[in-house]
């Protein structure tokens, strides 16, 4: 059952979006999300949707991979839509039963909110599909680096180190959890059946060995890091320096045009 967990969703390709600096991608994704939420009429939102569709196509990631992400959030989507459907009392009543009535405004609101969420998920998926987890980590560290001027330098570094180690060890720990689970199953442990309490109890023989081994790994890793002159990030350089290029400028300009379009539609209509 742990096989289902995939960590990092990077999809290899050489699209312009893949080649954009990860820092620029994070910032632009954030700005686009804000503007999608600022779209306050249906025209602006349709424009946003078309823009996002364009981005998806440019990313050269198969559309079915985006659909897979959509499927995962379907329950949340339905829940939000239903809440919004009943929330509004304005507009023409379409359907009424007991104390609840569905109005045109409610339908409008449900569609509007759902579309926003869909766009939000899609645009974030573009970021995770086109950027390796490592690049994301480095970009976050780089974007957080101004924090060092307010005395948070070691915090920024520690956070980045933690993310790097987590990325490295998650596959190892998943593999280990699988091994331990199999070993306990071979001793007759029943993991798949029983009620909730029984199932939680059945996890103990897996979690304790996993915890013990993680502690051991942490200890050995710390020693290995010390042997490789790790000094809490003091005076550390990086092999890879992220450099902005023409493609980053182009991406920024395209994004600015999209944002301007949304503002215009918001204001004009």
């Amino acid at each position: 059952m742990l096989n289902d967990i995939t960590f990092g969703q990077y999809y290899e390709s050489r699209s312009p979006i893949h080649r954009t600096d990860p820092r620029v991608k994070i910032v632009l994704t954030f700005i686009l999300i804000v503007f999608i939420f600022l779209s306050n009429n249906i025209y602006a939102l349709i424009f946003s949707a078309l823009s996002v569709l364009a981005v998806l196509l440019v990313s050269r990631v198969p559309l079915k991979m985006y659909l897979k992400n959509m499927k995962a959030i379907l329950p949340i989507l339905i829940f939000t839509a239903v809440i919004n459907l009943f929330y509004s009392s304005k507009g023409t009543v379409l359907l009424s039963f007991w104390k609840i009535s569905i109005t045109t405004a409610g339908v409008y609101r449900a569609v509007f909110t759902s579309l926003r969420i869909i766009l939000l998920i899609l645009i974030s998926s573009v970021l995770t599909y086109t950027t390796t987890p490592n690049d994301l980590t480095d970009a976050i560290e780089s974007l957080c680096s101004p924090l060092k001027y307010i005395g948070l330098k070691s915090a920024v570094h520690t956070l980045a180190m933690m993310m790097t180690i987590a990325l490295r060890f998650i596959p190892t720990l998943i593999e280990e959890a699988e091994k331990i689970m199999n070993a306990q199953k071979a001793r007759g442990a029943d993991i798949e059946s029983g009620n909730l309490i029984e199932r939680v109890k059945a996890l103990v023989p897996i979690l304790i060995p996993l915890l013990m081994s993680s502690v051991r790994r942490a200890y050995e890793l710390a020693e290995a890091m010390e042997c490789r002159c790790y000094n809490g990030g003091e005076g550390k350089t990086r092999m890879k320096r992220m450099k902005l290029s023409v493609i980053d400028l182009r991406m920024s300009i395209y994004s600015a045009i999209l944002c301007a379009g949304i503002i215009l539609l918001n204001v004009l209509i």
């Binding site: 790994r217 050995e220 490789r228 005076g235 550390k236």
Partner: peptide, 22 residues
Amino acid sequence: DNQLIASVVEEDVAFGPENLGI
């Protein structure tokens, strides 16, 4: 397993020299 730090081989090898400020 317990001495490799990065999730890409070359970045792991770079870890030591990076710490040394090369």
